[in-house]
Every structure is written in C-alpha cells, then in structure tokens.
C-alpha cells in the first residue's frame, strides 16, 4: 500500500495542520508516513501545501508524483493540483471558496462548504477540521478514533475550548458526507 495525499490552500487555512494531524494519526496506527510541508516566505496569505505519504512499507520519496487524494481549500489549489491527481483519484473541494469545478471526468469529487459550516463555531477557525473529518471518512486512511486521539494529544494541553471545538468540527465534517 502506498497512498499520497496533497493538502493545499492559502497560508492560514490550516492546510499544514491537516497534513500534520493525518501523519500523526497514521503513525499512531503503526504505518510508515512522511509529511512534507511547502513553506513560503510569508506566514499568512500566500499558498501553502503539504504532502502526506502513507505506506505499509518503507517510503522512498516524500514527494508525490501523482497523489491519490487532493484536499483543496481555495481556487488556485484547484488549478494547481487537479491535473496531478491520479486517474480514479479523489478530490475534496472547499465549495465555500472554490467556484470552478474540475474539468476531468475520471475523479471522484466531494464538495464540502467548510467555511460556511465553520461559521457556527466560536471564532470561526475550524474549517480545516471539518474538511479533515470529511476526508478521513471517505479516504478511509485512518480511523476517527485515532484522529480523535491525535487531536487530544495536540490540543489537549492548550485551551480546553480549542480542543472541544476542533473535536466537534471534526465530527461535523465526518457526519456531513453520507
């Protein structure tokens, strides 16, 4: 098994965090994993993306040629990655911010209006968690339980309210898709 996922969006949308959480969850499930963030000169704005490679064997390249999954949070990400995804692959698309749709017919596409859904949460900062919930349900790469444990270990020693809202956003995303 060798599965590659690209997360992409504006800096500040939490795409690196999504990749990091997925990578740690895979590590908890004893899989081999690499997580390669892109990094720009800016901390906010600009584009950010993060490649996570998961395998049951030793991982050769942390760079993905043709990812199976792409999680796209904004328009430029769609244009950049839609043609790199493997035939038969899957795109998760933030329909709150992405107006266009992929032109390819050989991909599964899930549309989640994560920014609209996130408005219900105090601070409106959990769009990435909603997306991550939807992603783990449909990709079936890690269990919801493993991800919940990662959230607890990552945010547990900060503000408990942050953990709580991230956890329920993850659940909302998980339940959003049938």
């Amino acid at each position: 098994m060798l599965i590659k996922t690209v997360f992409s969006g504006f800096g500040g949308q939490g795409v690196i965090m999504m990749g990091y959480l997925l990578a740690v969850a895979c590590m908890y499930e004893e899989k081999n994993v690499t997580c390669l963030p892109s990094y720009g000169a800016e901390v906010r704005g600009g584009t950010a993306n993060c490649t996570v490679v998961i395998s049951t064997e030793e991982i050769a390249s942390p760079v993905a040629s043709e990812p199976e999954f792409a999680v796209l949070m904004n328009n430029p990400s769609l244009f950049r990655f839609q043609n790199q995804v493997q035939s038969g692959g899957t795109i998760f698309l933030n329909s709150s911010m992405i107006e266009s749709r992929p032109v390819r017919g050989d991909l599964d596409i899930f549309e989640i209006p994560v920014n609209d859904l996130a408005k219900k949460f105090p601070g409106n900062k959990v769009a990435n968690m909603i997306m991550l919930g939807a992603f783990i349900k449909k990709s079936d790469l890690v269990s919801l339980d493993a991800m919940a444990r990662v959230l607890k270990d990552t945010f547990g020693n900060r503000n408990p309210a942050v953990l709580k809202s991230n956890r329920s956003a993850l659940q909302l995303g998980y339940d959003y898709l049938e």
């Binding site: 990091y20 990578a23 081999n32 994993v33 690499t34 997580c35 390669l36 963030p37 990094y39 942390p62």
Partner: peptide, 10 residues
C-alpha cells in the same frame, strides 16, 4: 537541505 529540515517523519 530545506526540504529535509521541514519534513516530518516518525
């Protein structure tokens, strides 16, 4: 290199 430094692995 920059990539190795930024990359995350177990």
């Amino acid at each position: 290199d920059g990539m190795l430094g930024q990359m995350m692995e177990p």
